[in-house]
Simulated scan of single mutants.
Amino acid sequence: MASLLCPSSIAKPGATLFGIQDSTGHIEYLEEPIVVDKTFVETARQGRAPEERFRFASNCAKSGCGHWDSGNAGCSLVGKLVEAMNRNVAQTLPVCAIRSNCRWFHQEGASACANCNEVVRNIRVQGLAVTE
């Protein structure tokens, strides 16, 4: 199986763009993912942080990520997200270009999808942008 993807990645060349925030703040998922290049990232960095407007995925970093729970061998963020948002699972899940390889879906199933479309990554700490 291919590596599982983190659906909360930063904008970087090689990342997969799979969603765009709409005017209501929800994520509209692309039917086909787009692998972004350096030009896209540079252009997207003009204005508001791209992570606050788009959803990117890249290979799950596992123990290289602060959200990795080695005891459960999984991402602790998705469990917190599902618990905090507690959205009901719809009978039909929205189209999602990364679901088959999504770390969150593999861990939490449809519950992850039900709570995913309002997630945008905020990489600002104390008003300063943080680079990763």
Rank of each mutant, 00 (worst) to 15 (best):
V82Y: 04
S76I: 12
R48L: 09
P50N: 07
K62C: 01
R48E: 12
F56A: 05
A57E: 12
G79M: 14
G66S: 07
R53Q: 12
D69A: 02
S76M: 12
G66T: 07
A57H: 01
R53D: 09
E51T: 10
K62S: 05
C60R: 00
L81F: 08
G74E: 10
A61S: 04
G74W: 03
E52D: 10
D69W: 08
R48Y: 02
E83A: 15
G66Q: 08
A61L: 10
A73W: 11
S58H: 06
L77K: 12
E83I: 12
P50D: 00
C75V: 11
F56K: 07
F54R: 03
C75N: 05
W68C: 03
G79Q: 14
E52A: 05
G64Y: 03
F54W: 14
N72F: 13
R48G: 08
N59P: 08
R55M: 10
S76Q: 14
R55C: 08
D69N: 11
N59G: 09
R48K: 13
G64E: 15
G47L: 11
G47F: 11
F56T: 02
S63Y: 04
S58I: 03
L81C: 11
N59L: 01
S63R: 07
L81D: 04
N72E: 15
G71V: 09
R55W: 09
C65P: 00
A61Y: 00
R53V: 03
G74R: 02
P50V: 04
P50S: 05
G66K: 04
S63M: 01
K80T: 14
K80E: 15
A61C: 02
G66Y: 02
D69P: 00
K62P: 02
A57Q: 04
F56G: 05
G66R: 00
H67T: 13
C65D: 14
V78R: 11
V78C: 15
E52W: 06
V78H: 11
K62R: 11
C65L: 03
L77N: 14
N72H: 12
L77A: 15
V82L: 06
K62D: 05
C65F: 00
C75Y: 06
E83C: 11
V82E: 05
E51D: 07
K62H: 05
K80R: 15
K80Q: 15
H67W: 14
V78I: 15
R53H: 09
A49N: 10
N59Y: 07
C60P: 06
C65W: 01
H67Y: 14
V82R: 06
R55F: 07
G64F: 01
S76F: 06
G64D: 13
G74A: 08
S70M: 07
A49C: 07
C65T: 02
G66M: 09
V82A: 05
W68G: 02
G47I: 10
W68R: 10
G74K: 03
C65H: 02
E83L: 14
C60S: 05
G47H: 12
L77D: 15
C65K: 00
L77P: 14
G66L: 09
N59H: 08
S76K: 08
K62N: 04
D69C: 01
G64C: 02
L77Y: 14
C65Y: 00
E51V: 04
R55E: 13
L81R: 10
N72V: 12
A57Y: 03
W68Y: 10
E51P: 10
C75T: 09
A57C: 01
